[in-house]
Structures are given as structure tokens and as C-alpha cells.
Design a protein around this nucleic acid. Structure first.
Length: 367
DNA sequence: AATACGGGGTA
DNA sequence: TACCCAGTATT
């Protein structure tokens, strides 16, 4: 249904016309410079449009150009990214900005090879940035287009399989028009997002339904086939709210997550796994704190609990009040320091740490 | 080919 | 609860 050139021409015209009428008004569509499109594409990786908008506006205000981003401290970049997830994106974005300033004279590179060489940029992002900002003729393939293509092509195999991926990249390339490549690529994604949705796709509203093999066979609800479902493992851990009072200001012990651990470059409260089989949690915690922090810790009452999910783990977190005596050692795993509420506002905090600071009363009790 | 990387939205 | 989201890098 898209295997002849006239069919593909018709498809392009219909899709572009639909996009001209129905595209959403999004901040990164205002001014399409490579820098702005690049930042938006990194933020949009595995993250929904609605979630990104506010982050994008704040980020562009803080770093309007690649130079300001390159000059910034990583902690500030991470703070702006706090809550978006996949923090490696922020660190790589920052690193890439430095590469652009040092190796490309502060001008965003304009060849696929150079763009692909930037940290955090893969084939999708390189194609998206160069097609959208400079109208280069490069294909894209991401979540929306995979679903759309799987239906257009009547792909009955697992879309994640490498053969499927190859076929879809090649399909994406074959569809590309000569002009308006950036609009066309965005139109593919917009159609996937607004019409060709995962559940109950809006085929009756679809401008290219007559080109869709899945629709022709009434199989739009069976394609794409669901890939293997993720199974979670349950974990328990405890967080120490270790406090002291200095000059009338309440301080908390926090530590910087180091290389090789989750939330690298972000701050967290001391957090330890709990062995569910061992019911003496307090003793476990005391030992862990002694080993990691090098001080005797007196564990107080459990303040509250919450759950969060990360990668393949569903983690139950118990938060304990605690008092420590002695000097805190700086461990290799990550520096532990005392910080007050104002510090906590400034530092990039891990997701659990952010939950905890939010759940704590604004003005600490005690004198 | 599988896995790590996060967190929020949604039915 | 389970799935999805403008993916990339590493193993």
C-alpha cells in the first residue's frame, strides 16, 4: 500500500496537509535552531511531551545557548533536570555542549557523523535534530513511528527484534520526501501520538488510513504485538534522617552519589538495603551506618514509608529518625556532609530524597 | 540480544 | 497493576 512511488507521494501530501492543520503548539516549534531542537530531543527521550514542556522552558531560560550550557556547573544542569529521570541525559548533554564549544567553535555541528559523535546522541536524535532544524533528509525511528510503521507495514513480528528494526528504518527512509523533511518527520510522530495511539487507534480520523495494511485487514488492534512484559523484584531499604542542630539551624546528613551508582552526581540521604529475613532492622541499620559513615548511630522511630520503582525493582522505603555521635568520615562511595534546608533546595536530589524532603514538615520541630 | 537507566501519566 | 513515553550506551 506504500510500495509504489505514486502511493508514497500521496502519503506524503496527505500527512503533511494533516500536520499543517493539526500540529500542536509546542515551545520547541517556535524557533527551530539546532541547539533548541537538540535540547528538546534529549529531554523527550522516553519522556512524554506534556512532562517536558515546563522543564524545557525553564532550561532554555537558564541556558539560552550552547555556550551558557557549556559554562554551567554540572550540579546546576542536574538541578534543572531534577524529576525528569534518566539523569545520564543531562550529564551527556552538558558534556556535549563542552565538545561543541571546544571542537566545533561553539557552532552546533551540521553533519550526521559529527552529531552522532556527540555523547547521548544516537541515530534517532541525530536524524531528528538535523531534519527538524536544518531540513536535512534523514530518517527517524522512535516509539510513535515504530507503532505507526508496524501498522502501516502489517508487521506481525516483535518490533524490537533487530530484523524489524532494520525493516522499519529502511521504511522510514523510503517514505522521506525531498523537501520539508523536518515537518514530515514531526508529522509521523504527531500522527502516532494523536491518532495512531497504542489503544483504540483513531483510524476513522487518520489521513493515511487508506495506506495502512493493518487497517485494511482490521488488525490495527493486534499490531504491534506486545513485547515481553517487565517483571519487578521487590526490595526493602531504609533511609536515615540523621540530624543535628548547628547555630540554631537544623542540618541533615546527605551524600553525593558517586560514579557507578544510581543517581550519580545527585544527593541522597544515607540509604541501606534491609534483609527482610532478619527482623532486627534497627540493628542492621546501625551496623550499616557504622560501616559506611564511621560513626555510632542511634536509630529512632520510623517516620514514614513509601514505595518507588526503578528499573526492574519495586522498592519499599522506610524512613527513620536517627542521631549520630562522632565525626562523619568521608567514604569512597560518596562524600557525606551536613546540609540545611536551604542547601537541600539548591542541590540536585535523588527521587527518594526529594520525596522525603517534601514529606517533612516545613519548619523542623525541636529547639 | 539483553539490560541499565527514572519517573510520571493513564486506564 | 501494567503499560507507555520524540532512546542511548554498555555488556
Amino acid at each position: 500500500m506504500l510500495d509504489s512511488s505514486p502511493q508514497r507521494s500521496h502519503f506524503r501530501r496527505k500527512l503533511l496537509a494533516w500536520f499543517d492543520r493539526h500540529q500542536r503548539d509546542l515551545p520547541w516549534r517556535k524557533e527551530r535552531t539546532p541547539y533548541r531542537i537538540w535540547v528538546s530531543e534529549i529531554m523527550l527521550q522516553q519522556t512524554q511531551v506534556a512532562t517536558v514542556i515546563d522543564y524545557y522552558l525553564r532550561f532554555m531560560k537558564a541556558f539560552p545557548d550552547v555556550q551558557s550550557l557549556a559554562r554551567a556547573k554540572e550540579s546546576r544542569v542536574l538541578k534543572l533536570w531534577e524529576g525528569l529521570g534518566y539523569y545520564r541525559r543531562a550529564r551527556q548533554l552538558h558534556a556535549a555542549a563542552k565538545v561543541i564549544c571546544e571542537k566545533h567553535g561553539g557552532v552546533f555541528p551540521e553533519t550526521v557523523e559529527d552529531v552522532l559523535a556527540l555523547p547521548g546522541v544516537g541515530r534517532y536524535t541525530a536524524g531528528a535534530v538535523l531534519s527538524i532544524s536544518l531540513d536535512q533528509r534523514l530518517p527517524i525511528l522512535e516509539g510513535n513511528t515504530q507503532r505507526l510503521f508496524a501498522r502501516l507495514m502489517l508487521l506481525e513480528e516483535d518490533p524490537k527484534a533487530s530484523a524489524s528494526q532494520r525493516a522499519m528504518w529502511s521504511f522510514s527512509e523510503s517514505l522521506l520526501p525531498r523537501k520539508r523533511c523536518g515537518d514530515f518527520n514531526q508529522a509521523l510522530m504527531e500522527l502516532g501520538s494523536l491518532i495512531c495511539q497504542p489503544k483504540s487507534p483513531g483510524c476513522l480520523l487518520c489521513p493515511v488510513a487508506n495506506h495502512c495494511a493493518a487497517f485494511a485487514n482490521g488488525k490495527q488492534d493486534q499490531i504491534p504485538v506486545a513485547s515481553r512484559k517487565m517483571k519487578y523484584e521487590n526490595l526493602h531499604e531504609a533511609v536515615l534522617l540523621l540530624r543535628r542542630r548547628r547555630k540554631g539551624i537544623e542540618e541533615y546528613l546527605v551524600r553525593l552519589c558517586g560514579e557507578g551508582e544510581r543517581w550519580q552526581g545527585m544527593w541522597d540521604f544515607p540509604r541501606y538495603p534491609i534483609d527482610a529475613a532478619d527482623n532486627n532492622v534497627v540493628e542492621q541499620l546501625g551496623r550499616a551506618a557504622k560501616n559506611q559513615l564511621g560513626i555510632e548511630v542511634e536509630i529512632g522511630e520510623r517516620v514514614f514509608s513509601f514505595r518507588h520503582a526503578v528499573t526492574k525493582y519495586r522498592i519499599s522505603v522506610d524512613v527513620y529518625n536517627a542521631i549520630g555521635t562522632g565525626r562523619v568520615k568521608k567514604s569512597k562511595a560518596g562524600e557525606a556532609v551536613w546540609g540545611n534546608a536551604a542547601d537541600l533546595e539548591l542541590l540536585p536530589m535523588s527521587a527518594p530524597a526529594r520525596k522525603i524532603t517534601k514529606m517533612r514538615p516545613k519548619s523542623p520541630t525541636g529547639k
